[in-house]
């Protein structure tokens, strides 16, 4: 079994603020982390390794320092790490990104057939949730988005059964491999790297693939290959909340007043 897991290096958005004047992200001194959803994808990949002896390849597209998120993936058990890095890939939107990732995974598929491509549900900097499905489309394989549980894998019949988390219900799907799967955070708790794992990851060689290897048409990748245009970035205004205090030991009055406010604002309906 061969699993490819996609990881992205993102700015730690809890530490990002938006410049009120220029409406751009203030990234000064903000550390980069592995996209949190991707940590669950890596963990799920390693669980396939633990259970079925799968070979796990981690792939990331990003600047040279994105190597750090690949090393983290290696520290918990990823077997091979590939960084797709080229100036030509820069400034990509989700379309151009999935073009690059899709082709890289196709190349990996030629070396050793890929059974499952794992992605996080979305990234915390873009929040689009489009790259995973984009990869599936380019590879022409089934996509299973929003998976919060892998129920079973039949390695002989090459099928997988998963549970998807939808708005009001769960959906259980069984399908044939290969698949592209995006995972919810609830799917697992990522393991903590052991020190021997970390020391190993410090030494491991991260392969860097540039467009010299992928040979993609530069019009389809990077900024030229990205039809998305950002008009404006802004922080949504948040209305000031208020604090309500009850009086005396009887809470029923306070509750009554509270619900009146909710009704007034059309938050609840009678």
């Amino acid at each position: 079994m061969h699993i490819v897991v996609c990881v992205k290096m993102v700015p730690d958005t809890t530490q990002v603020s938006i410049d009120p004047v220029t409406n751009t992200l203030i990234r000064d001194g903000v550390p980069f982390i592995t996209n949190p959803y991707d940590t669950n994808a890596v963990e799920e990949a390693i669980r396939f390794k633990d259970k079925y002896g799968a070979f796990v390849t981690a792939v990331s597209m990003g600047p040279p320092n994105a190597e750090s998120v690949l090393r983290k993936a290696v520290s918990i058990g990823t077997d091979r790490a590939i960084l797709l890095s080229d100036r030509a890939f820069g400034g990509a939107d989700t379309l151009a990104t999935s073009t690059v990732l899709g082709l890289a995974i196709k190349k990996l598929n030629e070396e050793q057939p890929v059974d499952i491509v794992l992605c996080g549900k979305q990234t915390i900097d873009g929040d689009t949730a489009q790259v995973g499905p984009g990869i599936a489309r380019r590879m022409n394989i089934t996509q299973l988005t929003l998976v919060d549980e892998v129920i079973s894998v039949n390695t002989e019949k090459k099928t997988i059964r998963v549970r998807r988390k939808l708005e009001n219900y769960h959906e259980i799907i069984e399908t044939k491999l290969p698949v592209m799967m995006t995972v919810e955070r609830e799917i697992n708790t990522p393991r903590y790297p052991t020190v021997p794992g970390r020391l190993h990851s410090d030494e491991v060689r991260v392969e860097v693939w540039s467009n010299a290897q992928l040979k993609l048409d530069t019009a389809t990748i990077g900024l030229p290959g990205s039809p998305t245009q950002v008009r404006r970035i802004f922080a949504p205004e948040r209305e000031q909340g208020e604090i309500m205090m009850g009086e005396g030991p009887d809470c029923s009055k306070a509750v009554e007043a509270f619900f009146e406010k909710l009704l007034d604002r059309d938050i609840v309906h009678v």
């Binding site: 730690d12 530490q15 550390p31 982390i33 393991r191 903590y192 790297p193 052991t194 020190v195």
Partner: peptide
Amino acid sequence: LVMEKAEFPEELIALFENSEQR
């Protein structure tokens, strides 16, 4: 338990990651 096994009460994972990252 922590460094070789990564086995510890689960509430500590946040502490460890927060301490290291932030």
